[in-house]
Each structure stands twice: as structure tokens, then as C-alpha cells.
């Protein structure tokens, strides 16, 4: 069991987390705009998350927190 949490308003929509997720479950949420005006990243299929924290390690803006 693992869970990732995104501080959505800090996200700059760069997509680096999408690139490194080995489970390919991180995606840009094209239907949402955050306070900065970016489409933030998020995870839908949380049950597939393995808690590797690759997304968080790669995020330049400290958006992501990971629990396992």
C-alpha cells in the first residue's frame, strides 16, 4: 500500500514526475488549472502506486509527498 500527495498549488506542470514514474500512473490533469495557471500533475490509479518516490525525488518544486 502506498500513497502520493500533490501540493497542487505548488505544481508548475513541468511533467518531470510523469516521465520517471515506473508504473506510468502520474499524469497531467488537463481539466484542472491551479492558482499559478498550470495544469497540475496527479495520480488516478493510486492502488498501483508502489511508493518508490521517484516522482517526488524528480520534482524540482517539492510538490510531492509519499507514504508507504
Amino acid at each position: 500500500m502506498a500513497r502520493v500527495e500533490f501540493r497542487e498549488d505548488r505544481c508548475k506542470g513541468c511533467g518531470l514526475c510523469v516521465e520517471v514514474c515506473p508504473k506510468h500512473i502520474v499524469a497531467m490533469r488537463c481539466d484542472v488549472l491551479n492558482a499559478k495557471g498550470f495544469h497540475p500533475a496527479g495520480v488516478e490509479a493510486m492502488d498501483q502506486c508502489i511508493g518508490c518516490a521517484f516522482c517526488a525525488i524528480m520534482c524540482p518544486d517539492e510538490v510531492i509527498q509519499v507514504e508507504k
Binding site: C14, E62, Q65
Partner: peptide, 22 residues
């Protein structure tokens, strides 16, 4: 569940002004 990745204590909780993906 335990935290496996969290913000570092070495940075203040202030958003960076850098460009996306920098």
C-alpha cells in the same frame, strides 16, 4: 503507512521562483 519522502528541513517552505522543470 510511513512517510518515505517528505520536504527537507533544509529548505524554508517558500515556493521557488524558477521556471517549470528547471
Amino acid at each position: 503507512m510511513a512517510l518515505v519522502y517528505q520536504r527537507t528541513c533544509g529548505l524554508l517552505d517558500v515556493p521557488f521562483h524558477y521556471c517549470p522543470g528547471c
